[in-house]
Design a protein around this nucleic acid. Structure first.
Lengths: 353, 353
DNA sequence: CTGTTAGCGCGTTCAC
DNA sequence: GTGAACGCGCTAACAG
C-alpha cells in the first residue's frame, strides 16, 4: 500500500548506486570515504556518474550505526532569548564546522523539565558529547552526562557535584574590573543587582567577588539587590522598593554634590535590561543622568542606551567548549579542567564623570 | 577519580536487555512500542526491571533506520542574532514538542554557503521535513527540498521558483496599518528604510505596500531608503547622507510648525536598531524628540527606546509552520498554501503627538 | 585493485 | 504469548 509516485521517491541507497555502477557496495563505500587511491580511474568515474544520476546521498544514520560514531554533539542552551547564548552558539558552530561535528541544538527555554527531557533525548540519539549551559538547579538531571556517561562540558556555570570540564567568564576578574572602574569614576554607593544566585555558580561568584573587591575601598558602600525576573509581580515590587531608596540617594546628591554618587551594577544582561526599562519608564530617556548603570554582558542595545559593560568573550567560550569536548571524545583522560576567559570593559557615557 | 573502565561503558542494547530479562528481543521491542496488552504481566515486570537495571535507552538512530522515520525535522535559521528568529523558534519548539518531533536547528549565520551546506547535511540525516527561513538569494540551493525532495515549509519569505507552503506576516496589512498610523499621527514625510529588498520577498512586499498605502494620502510624501547593514562603510555613508536631509527637514519644522513632520519607518528590527543607534549617537538620548521611528518587529529594546512597532505573531508563525510540515509528512497532497498572519500595532512615545 | 561476508541496534514477519 | 530469522543502509575485515 505504498504510495506510487507520492511524496517520497525513496532515496537511493548504496546498493542502488552499486548496481547502477555495475559494482559492489564496498567500492562505493570506499569512494565515499575518500579511499580514492585504491580505485581504478574508470571505476571511480562510473561511480561518480552513478551517484550523480541517482542524486545519491549517504545515510548518516546508517553509517553512524555501523561505525559507532555519528559526529553529532548536543548543545543544550538554557535560554536562547539571552543574546549571550546566541553568541556562544556562534562560537560552537564555528568550532563544530572546523572539527567536523554537527551540533544538535536544544533549547530548554528556562524550564527544568525541558532540560531533563532534552538531555534524555540527546543520549537517545547517541550524540558523542554535549555542551551544556545548564539551568543549574539540578545535578540530578545531568546524571546521564559527565563522569560515567557521555563526555560533557559546561558553559558559563558549573553544577554542584558534577565534575566536568567547564569554560566561562573569569567572574572574579571581571567583577573586580567593573567594581574598580566604578570606584575610580567616583561612585561610592554601589548596588549589585542580580537574580537569585544561590544555585547558579556564575552569579554566586560575581556576587561574592563584588563584595570582596569592595573590601579594598572602605569609603565605598555596596549592597546586593536580588531581582526575580521570572515573577512579574515580585519584580515590580522589588523595583519599586528600589526606587524609593534610589530617589532618596539621588535627592541627597542633588542637594549636596558631596554626597556619594550612586551606581547600579547589573550581574548580567537580562538584569540590566529590566533595570533600564524600569528606569526609562520612570524617569524618561534621561534616566542615565540620574543613575549610572553598568552590566556584565554586552547586548546590542547597550550601545544604544550608552551603558558601560563588561563584554564576555562569548565566541571564544563556545569555541573552546567544543575543543574541550573534542579532546574528550578523542579519549583524553585528564581530570576535569576549568577555562576562565577574561572580560573586556567597554566604557560608555553611563559611567562617565 | 578517572573513569574506572575506559571512556565509553558501551550502552546497553536491546539484546542485552533481552538476555537480562531472560527473553527475546521481540518482547522488549513490543514493550518499548507500547504493545503492552500482548505481554504477560510477569514478563512485563521482568522487562521493566532489566531496563531499569541496565539503564537502557533505545537507540533512535537504529529504530529510525529500521522504520524509515526518525522524527527529526530540520529548522534552518538565517540569522539567530535576529530576535525574530528566536521567537519563531520558540513556536517551532513548542509544536515539535506537541507533535513528537525533534527539531534539528541549523544556523546559517547569514552565509549562503552555510545555508547550502546545512540543507545538504539535513537531507543526509534523513530529516522528515525542513522548515526554512531562507536567506532567499538562491532557489538553487533549495533544490533538494520542496517539490521533489523532502517536505518543506518556508518562513517569513518565499523563494522565487520554489512552490511550497509558506507562513509569515501579512506584510500588506501590517505595512498599511503602520503607514496609516503615522499619517493619522500627523507625519507627512515618511521615509521607509529597508535593506536591499529585490531578492527577499517580505522586504519587497513591505516596500511595495508602503507606497501603495501612500496613494491614499496625496498630501504625504514617502520615499524608500536602502540600508546595507552588512557593509559598515556603506552603512555609515548612507546614514550620513540621511542625516543631512533629516537635519534640513527638522530645521524647517523647527522654524515653522506648519512644515510636515518627519518619521522613519524601519522595515524590520535590525534596520530599526541601526537607525536608533545612529540617531542616538548623533543627537543624544533625546533623539526621539527630533524624529519619530516606527518599526516592523518588536525586539526587547523597543520598549526601552519607546519606539512604536508592529509586533509579528512570531510564536504562531513557528507553530503553524510545524503543523503544515506535519501534514505534509503525513502525506497531505494539497497544493502549496500560504498562511499570512496579522501584525499588531504597539504604540509608544515615539509616534505620539 | 575489487567483491564477499558479517554484523551495527533495532523492528517485523512468521512460525512455535 | 513468545522467540528465531531477516533486513534497514552502511562499514570493515577478509579474501581473491
Amino acid at each position: 500500500m505504498n504510495t506510487p509516485t507520492s511524496g517520497a521517491p525513496r532515496r537511493a541507497t548504496i546498493s542502488d548506486v552499486a548496481r547502477e555502477a555495475g559494482t559492489g557496495k564496498t567500492s562505493i563505500s570506499r569512494y565515499l570515504n575518500g579511499e580514492l587511491s585504491v580505485l581504478s580511474p574508470q571505476l571511480r568515474a562510473r561511480i561518480e556518474a552513478a551517484i550523480e544520476r541517482l542524486d545519491y546521498q549517504p545515510n548518516q544514520m546508517a553509517r553512524g550505526l555501523k561505525r559507532g560514531r555519528n559526529r553529532l554533539i548536543g548543545m543544550l542552551v538554557a535560554d536562547l532569548t539571552n543574546p549571550y547564548s546566541v553568541e556562544v552558539l556562534q562560537g560552537v558552530e564555528a568550532a563544530c564546522h572546523a572539527l567536523g561535528y554537527m551540533p544538535l541544538i536544544c533549547h530548554a527555554a528556562n524550564e527544568v523539565d525541558m532540560e531533563r527531557r532534552f538531555l534524555q533525548l540527546l543520549t537517545t540519539y547517541r550524540v558523542e558529547g554535549v555542551i551544556v549551559n545548564a539551568l543549574g538547579v539540578s545535578e540530578e538531571t545531568l546524571r546521564p552526562v559527565g563522569g560515567g556517561g557521555i563526555p560533557a562540558v559546561l558553559v558559563d556555570r558549573s553544577v554542584d557535584g558534577l565534575v566536568t570540564d567547564m569554560v566561562g567568564l573569569d567572574n572574579e576578574g571581571a567583577t573586580t574590573l567593573a567594581t574598580r572602574h566604578l570606584v575610580e569614576r567616583g561612585f561610592e554607593r554601589l548596588w549589585f543587582v542580580v537574580q537569585p544566585f544561590e544555585h547558579i555558580s556564575s552569579r554566586r561568584q560575581r556576587e561574592a567577588a563584588f563584595h570582596r573587591a569592595l573590601e579594598q575601598y572602605p569609603q565605598v558602600k555596596g549592597r546586593t539587590v536580588v531581582l526575580e525576573l521570572g515573577d512579574a509581580d515580585e519584580l515590580a515590587q522589588t523595583l519599586n522598593a528600589l526606587d524609593d531608596e534610589l530617589d532618596a540617594a539621588i535627592a541627597a546628591f542633588d542637594a549636596s554634590p558631596n554626597v556619594p554618587r550612586v551606581a547600579l551594577f547589573a550581574a548580567n544582561g537580562p538584569v540590566a535590561l529590566a533595570l533600564a526599562r524600569h528606569l526609562n519608564q520612570r524617569h524618561g530617556p534621561n534616566w542615565q543622568k540620574r543613575v549610572a548603570l553598568l552590566s556584565i554582558d554586552d547586548p546590542e542595545w547597550a550601545e544604544l542606551a550608552g551603558i558601560t559593560t563588561i563584554r564576555q568573550p562569548t565566541y571564544d567560550i563556545g569555541y573552546r567548549a567544543v575543543e574541550f569536548l573534542h579532546q574528550r571524545i578523542d579519549g583524553e583522560q585528564t581530570s576535569a579542567r576549568d577555562c576562565l576567559l577574561p572580560g573586556e570593559l567597554i566604557e560608555r557615557a553611563s559611567t562617565a564623570r
